[in-house]
Computed example of a mutant assay.
Amino acid sequence: MSEPSSQSFPPAGIDGFLSHFVFTVRVNKGDLAGQVFSYTWPAAVQTVVRSEPFIYEGPEANHRVEFALPKGADLPTTLSEEDFIAIPPGFFEAGKETIWLQILNLDARGETEYGPMRCILGATFKREYPDIFQASFGAAQSLGDSGLPARLFFNPNGIFETPFGNLHTRPKALLGTRVDKVPPVGSNPELLGPIALDSVDDLRAAAKDGTALPETPAASLLALAHPIDAQLQADEGELFDLVERAISRTA
């Protein structure tokens, strides 16, 4: 029996919120090979654009949504189902209300015993690593027939800049089994499996030479949670610029 809706999905727009990362990483190569580290990073500001809600009718419907991107966000303006690189098993159900999402910007930072670390997604990722950029898409779908509560997932594509090299995430999904509001404040999306982290240098060399990536990635994320802490209380039209300014100040 499906769960009754308690709140409607909002119309298309942009959300800004505080979020942070809790993760465990294993280094697979180099002087620190075999070492496992766990960290909780300080909160960082993030922006996400959402589509208009629609009723998902299955892959044969060839759904395509448009994103109303803010000025300065040089990111994909449309999203179709084939653009998702990792969908949790059984996530999309025909007949349920759905919104599709894209991370606009995130620059999270933390200190470790070996030095500073940083994770970037969205516009900052594209600006600093344009040759290997991948967008970060996601979706929320009603647990009932429409509206909230819902479940949510993201494909976070980004770069980890670390004391043991700059690393690129391989495709995986973060899943939040229940969200009661949009933005999903209070939710805690988690990994469904480990994420391999490839050396940016290896990735570029493979693209240049047409060779395969090394079988063993440079590092692996063994656990990752992404608690959503609080909504940014600002006009929707300001949110992207607010986050851009916060990122440029700490760069």
Rank of each mutant, 00 (worst) to 15 (best):
S80I: 02
E111G: 02
E97D: 11
E97I: 06
A86C: 14
I103C: 04
I99L: 14
L106K: 10
L104Y: 09
P116F: 04
F91P: 00
I103M: 12
R118F: 05
P89V: 07
A86E: 15
E128F: 05
P89L: 07
Y114T: 02
R109M: 12
D83L: 06
E111A: 11
T124G: 00
G95H: 05
R118E: 11
D107C: 11
R127V: 02
Y129A: 04
F125V: 11
A86W: 04
D107Y: 09
I87Q: 14
P89R: 10
A94K: 13
L104T: 11
E111S: 11
T124F: 00
I85P: 09
T77I: 14
T78Y: 10
L101C: 10
L101Q: 13
F92P: 13
P130E: 08
T124Y: 01
T77K: 15
D83V: 02
E93V: 14
A94Q: 12
E82P: 04
K126L: 08
R118S: 08
S80R: 14
Y129K: 10
P89Q: 12
T78K: 11
L79G: 07
T78D: 08
P116K: 08
I103N: 05
C119R: 13
S80F: 01
Y114D: 04
A86K: 15
L104F: 12
E93K: 15
I120P: 03
E113R: 12
Q102E: 13
R118L: 04
T112I: 06
G95Y: 07
